[in-house]
Simulated assay, not measured.
Amino acid sequence: MFKKTTEEDSKYNHLEHMAVKELLYHINTEDKRVPLAVEKALPQIEALTHAIVQKLKKGGRLFYIGAGTSGRLGVVDASECPPTFGVPAELVVGIIAGGDLAIRKAVEFAEDSKTQGWLDLQAHAITAEDVVIGIAASGTTPYVIAALEKCNENNIHTGCISCNKNSPLAIAARFPVEVIVGSEFITGSSRMKAGTAQKLVLNMISTATMIQLGKVKGNKMVDMQLSNNKLIARGQEMLAKELNIPLDQAALLIAKYGNVRNSVKNYKQ
């Protein structure tokens, strides 16, 4: 039987009477439960990640689709892939109910549409070569569920990240990930533990996928975009260490070839 544990009453009460120290202690106590819940979902995360890697190696793309906090987390993870791993912006795409406006401001009833999610995916010319991950803490968001169901009809791989067991979203997804974190410190505030769990899973999926795609060498982001002085300096230091050359020579190579990988490749030729 489906039960929304994310909506259950908090274990704590009379929060307004707690001192700041007490509030922080209890929030931290609850947060500690999240990594353990993620650990229990590792087999599911592994299965989904394998499916993603397989599709992306064949030229497919990864889509995250969600509403509210869940949608924003997907957008954040997608937006960090190009600068971190040097991949095209269209390789990992975050879609949020209500469009870009909803990233900063709630768009009323956007998550309730059963048609808009699929329309938003179609705007990206989605195909059976792609993978779509629906993100919803409750596992009941109509916008997300309906989008995954249409993906299934069109032979598109589907996954999900939810925080309730046996939710409608998990049933709709071919590769469900269920991280059961229990009730929130503030009843129903799934931006807290559930949001943290979703962020951890997204980190794992995108990072493991990019490593499998060859975007990391050793433990270094050799394809990162050198888009500010901090990252340029990091790239120079990385290159100097890799090639055992002076920092000023590494700086010249970076300036000429654009990133660490290209600099290494051309230096060895």
Rank of each mutant, 00 (worst) to 15 (best):
M204F: 11
L169M: 03
E108I: 12
H14A: 15
Y64M: 07
H124P: 00
A128L: 00
D120L: 11
P43Q: 01
P82G: 00
S189T: 03
P35N: 07
N152D: 06
T49Q: 04
P83I: 00
K217M: 13
M210Q: 09
C163R: 03
A47F: 06
F2A: 04
Q44N: 09
T158K: 12
V177M: 10
S162L: 02
I245G: 07
E90L: 00
H50R: 13
K150D: 12
C81F: 00
M1W: 10
R191L: 06
A194V: 10
G86P: 00
P246Y: 03
E8I: 12
V34H: 03
C81N: 06
L119E: 15
E237D: 11
T84C: 04
P35S: 09
E8N: 15
H17L: 15
S138E: 11
E8P: 06
N164A: 02
S10M: 11
L91Y: 06
L91C: 04
G98P: 09
I65A: 07
G99E: 08
L73H: 10
D9T: 14
R174I: 13
Y257R: 03
E153H: 06
N219K: 11
V53Q: 04
A240T: 06
Y257A: 03
V177L: 11
A67R: 01
I186H: 06
E149K: 15
I245Y: 05
I245E: 09
M18A: 13
I205F: 02
T207M: 01
G71S: 06
I186R: 08
L62S: 05
K150L: 10
Q44D: 09
Y267C: 05
L253Q: 04
L62R: 05
H50W: 05
D9R: 15
T49N: 05
H14F: 14
G117Y: 08
I103E: 14
E30W: 03
L243E: 05
V179K: 09
T209H: 07
I95M: 00
Q122M: 14
V75L: 05
T158I: 14
N152K: 13
A208D: 10
V20Y: 13
A233C: 02
S162Q: 03
A194R: 11
L101W: 11
Y267D: 02
S189Y: 02
E39M: 08
L253H: 08
S183M: 05
S113A: 04
V34R: 02
K217V: 12
T5Y: 13
K268Q: 15
S263P: 03
A240C: 06
N203G: 04
Q269I: 08
D248W: 10
L24H: 09
